[in-house]
């Protein structure tokens, strides 16, 4: 019996879904660290027990909203914003090619309006449009955004926010 094994069992014992075996009870009796952890987990189990919520009333309110609130597709509503953001990015990519040789390129830091307010689906759309503009202007083998899973897309979104 190790402390780790005992630790892994604590939540289910605290929830009443399991009980200590004799060996575990003996370990708990002799190990101060595990006793302290058990006190924490037991107290953690009780946290929020005072929270009361009227589930029937909540269900009624949720159903009322589901009946009455239209399904708003922000994705469609802000298509113009996506187009604007995509145009700004394309301009950034094409601008250096138009400059006379020998002249330093302008800084690439440009404020793309409204990205902060975009929903996940909208950002994905913007990213897709970026990908299109990139493949149209480059021969590089850039990885496709289709290869990204939602978590990676989310990370990318976060990196844009920085």
């Amino acid at each position: 019996m190790t402390c780790q094994e005992l630790s892994d069992r604590m939540p289910s014992v605290a929830a009443g879904a399991a009980t200590w075996s004799q060996e575990e009870a003996e370990h708990l009796r002799t190990c101060a660290g595990c006793r302290a952890e058990w006190a924490v987990v037991s107290a953690g189990r009780a946290v929020g027990a005072q929270a009361s919520i009227d589930a029937d009333a909540l269900a009624a309110r949720v159903l009322h909203r589901l009946r009455t609130e239209p399904i708003v597709r922000r994705f469609q509503r802000r298509r113009w914003l996506i187009g604007l953001a995509a145009a700004a990015v394309i301009a950034i990519i094409l601008l250096p090619a138009k400059l006379p040789r020998g002249q330093p390129a302008p800084p690439l830091a440009v404020d793309v309006p409204g990205l902060d307010g975009l929903a996940y689906g909208e950002l994905a759309d913007v990213l897709e449009s970026l990908e299109t503009s990139w493949t149209e202007t480059s021969t590089s083998d850039a990885p496709s955004l289709d290869d990204l899973d939602p978590r990676e897309l989310e990370r990318m979104e976060r990196s844009w926010e920085i």
């Binding site: 929020g48 027990a49 929270a51 009361s52 919520i53 589930a55 269900a59 159903l63 589901l66």
Partner: peptide, 21 residues
């Protein structure tokens, strides 16, 4: 709608405890 209401009743208390914690 009854199914949705049942889901709310089933999980409302646990959700409230989590949010409070």
């Amino acid at each position: 709608e009854q199914a949705a209401a049942d889901l709310v009743r089933r999980h409302a208390s646990a959700l409230a405890r989590f949010l409070t914690g």
